[in-house]
Amino acid sequence: MTTQQIIIQSLHQIDQHHPDFQQLVALSQCDSVTQINGQVLKLEGVTRSAEALEQMQRVCFGAQWDLTALSSPLSLSDFKLVAMDMDSTLITIECIDEIADMQGLKPEVAEITEAAMRGELEFQESLIRRVALLKGLDASALERVFEERLELSLGAATMLKAVQAAGLKTLLVSGGFTFFTDRMKSMLNLDYSHSNVLEIENGKLTGKVIGTIVDATEKQRTVERVCAELGISPRQAIVMGDGANDLKMMQISGLSVAFRAKPVVRAQAHVALNFVGLDGVLNLMQ
């Protein structure tokens, strides 16, 4: 494997004399080390095997640093769209788990959520099972989750500000619910959103979803549809996600970003941000 540069990022200052960093330099056999800032370092002129790169990844994971290997330089101008999953990606929570908490059912629902995110359970089946458990819940619970528990992920606001300033369009595509995505779209001035519709009758959740369920295939179709509307290739899209439901849309993108993701997703993404914020993607751009 040939890699021209490797970016190392951390939430904290990286000491170039730290034994872990010195081990990375030795493993990479890089030509030079460039300090972008105290928390971001670039190893340039790297030509190493896949095995050496895996060893470097293990060192970084242990040190709580994020490593990204680039075969060619990236620029925001290479891209026209950023597509993001919502739950546990753009925001810190899984909305359905927090809604379930209002019913005293968070452990049962969260267990199903985790299995689906790991790819052990088909998303459609998992969503139907979870939503059914919410039957009879007062719809005001959704507002409480939005007001009391929903927070943007670390670095999300900085990342969005930068990509929007650079002229990229933004898409929020979620296996979650329109109650939340519609509000996030408005609040963050996003261009597109697509998610599931919870059925509500007489102010209560019926335990059902209306229309097409936004599963992995529907997420991929949504990215493709928005790209077609914009007259661009999916290869001009940056796609961010954390669970197995995001893999299909990530696989068609030009740059896939696994954020605080399950191992199955980290293994298949171009970039894995395990420790830094979503704005870590900006440090990969020149």
Rank of each mutant, 00 (worst) to 15 (best):
I6P: 00
Q9N: 12
Q13T: 13
D15E: 13
Q16R: 14
Q16P: 05
H17Q: 15
H17K: 13
H18M: 00
Q22M: 09
Q23K: 14
Q23Y: 00
V25Q: 14
A26S: 14
L27P: 03
L27S: 06
C30L: 04
Q35D: 04
G38S: 11
E51P: 02
A52E: 12
L53S: 10
Q55P: 02
M56R: 09
R58H: 13
R58K: 14
C60S: 08
G62C: 10
Q64F: 08
P73M: 07
S75Q: 15
S75Y: 10
S75L: 12
S75K: 15
S77F: 11
D78S: 11
L81P: 11
V82R: 05
A83N: 10
L90W: 06
L90I: 06
I96S: 01
I99C: 06
Q103T: 07
G104L: 02
L105I: 03
E108N: 13
A110L: 08
E111S: 15
I112V: 15
I112S: 05
E114G: 01
E120V: 02
E122L: 14
I128D: 02
I128G: 00
K135M: 04
K135N: 13
S140P: 00
L142H: 11
E143A: 14
R149V: 00
S153R: 07
L160D: 06
A162M: 00
K169M: 03
T170K: 04
T170A: 03
V173Y: 01
G175C: 08
G176W: 02
T178S: 09
T181R: 03
M184Y: 00
L190W: 07
Y192M: 04
Y192P: 01
I200K: 03
N202S: 15
L205I: 03
T212E: 15
D215H: 03
T222W: 03
E224R: 08
R225G: 05
R225N: 12
A228L: 03
M240P: 05
L247R: 12
V257K: 10
V265N: 09
L273A: 12
L273W: 05
L273S: 12
M285P: 07
Q286N: 13
